[in-house]
Design a protein around this nucleic acid. Sequence first.
DNA 1: TCGCTAGTTATACACTTGCATAATAAGCTC
DNA 2: GAGCTTATTATGCAAGTGTATAACTAGCGA
Lengths: 211, 211
Amino acid sequence: MSRKPFRRASDAERRADLIDAMLDCIAEGGIQNATVREVAERAGVSGGLIRHYFATKEQLLHAAYRHTMVAMTEISAEAGMADGKSAQAKFAGFVSACLMPPMIDARRLSLWAAFIAMARIDPAMGAIHRESYLEYRGLIERLLAGAYEEAGRSVAPVVVRRLAIEVNAVLDGLWLEGSLAGDLFEGQELLKAGLHSVGSITGLRLDHIEG
Amino acid sequence: MSRKPFRRASDAERRADLIDAMLDCIAEGGIQNATVREVAERAGVSGGLIRHYFATKEQLLHAAYRHTMVAMTEISAEAGMADGKSAQAKFAGFVSACLMPPMIDARRLSLWAAFIAMARIDPAMGAIHRESYLEYRGLIERLLAGAYEEAGRSVAPVVVRRLAIEVNAVLDGLWLEGSLAGDLFEGQELLKAGLHSVGSITGLRLDHIEG
DNA sequence: TCGCTAGTTATACACTTGCATAATAAGCTC
DNA sequence: GAGCTTATTATGCAAGTGTATAACTAGCGA
């Protein structure tokens, strides 16, 4: 009748572990598989502990969703921030990053889809979605505006916004296709498609860009 | 102790009812809410009946997924088949149809996302996905090839295929954005974005097309 | 009208679910 | 090291889960 020995972890560490475990559950078995017990086991922790950090399973889910979207935004934002590059090169780097690992990733896609499916059902999930969507679109808008300014082209803000929507759409779509069926695309096919289509939409030449 | 009176329905009718009920469950409460009892109640039928038509709940889910994708493909295929139109107009009609109701629809998106999330988890769902994806892409490829031929432009099949992938991606992305947050787009904004971006990618002028 | 078939309901069962509660022990403070 | 706080485990519970089984009845054919 001896209890399992344990180690007291910091608040941040435990939360992160639980979020990771929750994401693993969803990615590998779908939302239906993300039960309190399954999450706890994956986190190497007893079931009751979850309630100590999150009032309810739903709240853990919300935290996991937010975590996922913040991570994705960060990955591509970084690619669009590299120093010592022209604005157009930054934009091209951003587009490329969106269409390569670690962004192109089947697991990421499964998670994203599971969350999106709940965005309309659970208002809190909907709010998280909108928040991250607008942030992402804003990022594209800024990169785009920078590239146009550098190229000496004056484009009205309202047009930049519309183009950002379109760019976001292609990137979403290609990201989707690539993550879902990466084996259908050989080599750099996805990347080429992205640079070409984004280039066509924006009127910027994104291939042949150096530093 | 009197039983509920009932009516014996045809095989096709009952299956359709059950599939509809299953889709309602998923759309309104997520996969987690699609329980045997909930589906049965929505279909106005006792729980056990489901087993009479589908060996397992999973099989009903597969049928529901297939049904959803076939319906979506049909809607946009029809728009690309209208008689008495030029090939370019057909293509433009197809693009437009993809970005308007009934294609742009929050419920449809929730369903799609819930299914996509399972595509990597459940092999059968994965197969259904791949099947419908390839059919959709093939449809775009044919419409595109027709439009190029009509315009007197000779484009290599491999290029048409790549452009079809890109077009599919923008349409997916815009469909996503429109269905998720239709209120962020005023009037014809989504449609304009679609015609512009697809036009840019393909080099075809899709606006200003009559009959 | 009288079966008979099979579509349909009702019930049971073993198991899982999320959450509440109480008991325990890790590890800090003094 | 003693004592205290609280992170952590263990257990319990009511509700819900998918499916198997048996009883019933609608509606066809004779």
